[in-house]
Amino acid sequence: MPAVEKVLTLLALGAVFGFAYYSLNSTPVISDSNFTYIAELEWYKTYEEGLREAKQQNRTLMVYFWTIWCIYCEKYHTEVFSRPDINAILAERFVRVAVDMDVNKRDTRRFGVQAPPYIVFLTPDERVIMRVPGYVPADEFRRILDAVVEEGGA
């Protein structure tokens, strides 16, 4: 191989390996074996875990159904759950469960959810307070949260 092309090839290989290494270490982890991380909050991965915690703390349960490819889920994460006032309510008042519909088919079936995003609010004794199918913009979502907090008495 001619010298110039050899140098170019080595540069390209360097770029490829650099990219592979850097991106693997800098891409945000969205879930590991313990939690799912959405909007800087920890979310339980199964309904069971969340329910146990909700009973213990006697707090309202928010079960959120999502997938990695769902555009409106992304909107939820960046524009709704991350908004400081909503984020604070989610952190303080709720036990959060994020059901990845591609992985956790059991809980998806349990609630009969067809398409993401989808949210179910429940009391610690498993009474459904509200079902929210589809995407709801931040202001309305805030009103929903307030209503749920009031009804759940959390």
Binding site: L24, T27, P28, I30, S33, I68
Partner: peptide, 23 residues
């Protein structure tokens, strides 16, 4: 390669470590 890597490393890593990346 960037496209290939972005498509294939998340499922591979998930199989190995249960970690899910936000690609």
């Amino acid at each position: 390669f960037i496209v290939f890597y972005g498509v294939s490393f998340p499922p591979v890593v998930k199989l190995l470590t249960a970690k899910k990346y936000a690609v």
